[in-house]
């Protein structure tokens, strides 16, 4: 469904991604891990077509997004739901306006109708819609904001792929588990491909069918949990070293189901 073919990407002469190649299949849950600044988030931006690689191809549903015009990219983006780091909710809009943003901008549906859909979606992501729908994003906790962002992505594009950029960073353990539970629920109930970028091993183990580890812009590991726990590649070992002791405990951890 999504394929990176020998992708190179640089910001201001600094090479961020070097020869990245991987494939994500429909309904697969892929976690991209790596230390901060290793280029993980850039991969999500490339999938959305927000950036273009200097070299290589990114194929989404048999189409190369790098060679598309902005208007053509829109058709691809309609199939992708993106949850940005910190939620990226529109801070001047209320919660229901945020959730119904796409419908407000792109459809002729009435405000009441969109409001109803937003309430339903807020309920789906485990939030009390009546309580929060007229609030501003800043009035919600970090975990609630993240769930609103997931609801917005779902209602917006009816996605085939969900992208999550550091979905639990900065959240307290309870909120982080709620968000992880919601991501798992979405992946299993709606059966869509999921790509999660994180540097937190607990998130990765809880969510992934497959792991990619990126260090200094290069893919140093691509495989499942068992292969990861046995991997002897020095860069992978270096990245996992702080988590080694808790690795298997984390792998067996149960996450709250919403």
């Amino acid at each position: 469904m999504i394929e990176f073919k020998n992708v190179y990407f640089a910001y201001d002469e600094k090479l961020i991604l070097k020869n990245i190649s991987f494939k994500v299949n429909a309904s697969e849950a892929l976690v991209i891990m790596g230390p901060s600044g290793s280029g993980k988030s850039t991969i999500l931006r490339l999938i959305l077509g927000l950036e273009c690689p200097q070299k290589g191809d990114i194929i989404i549903e048999d189409k190369n997004i790098c060679r598309m015009k902005e208007s053509q990219k829109q058709n691809i983006r309609k199939k992708i739901g993106m949850v940005f780091q910190d939620g990226a909710l529109f801070d001047s809009l209320s919660i229901w306006e945020n959730v119904g943003y796409y419908l407000l901008e792109h459809t002729n549906m009435s405000v009441e109708e969109i409001g109803q859909k937003a309430i339903k979606m807020l309920g789906f992501v485990g939030l009390d819609a009546q309580e929060i729908m007229d609030k501003l994003p800043e009035q919600l906790s970090g975990g609630m904001q993240r769930r609103v962002a997931i609801g917005r992505a779902l209602l917006s594009t009816n996605p085939k792929v969900m992208l999550y950029d550091e979905p639990t960073t900065g959240l307290d353990p309870q909120s982080a588990e709620n968000v992880l539970g919601l991501i798992k629920k979405l992946h299993h109930e709606i059966s869509i491909a999921t790509i999660v970028v994180t540097h937190q091993i607990a998130d990765a183990v809880a969510l992934a069918d497959r792991f990619i580890v990126i260090v200094e812009g290069e893919v140093v590991f691509d495989g499942n949990l068992e292969e990861l726990s046995r991997c002897n590649q020095p860069k992978v070992k270096g990245f996992l070293a702080p988590f080694r002791k808790s690795f298997f405990k984390v792998a067996q951890k149960k996450f709250i189901e919403i």
Partner: peptide
């Protein structure tokens, strides 16, 4: 800086 502009682009808005 809070990615709101990128979110707009992702939702098909120029």
């Amino acid at each position: 800086s809070s990615n709101q502009i990128d979110a707009m682009v992702a939702f098909g808005i120029d």
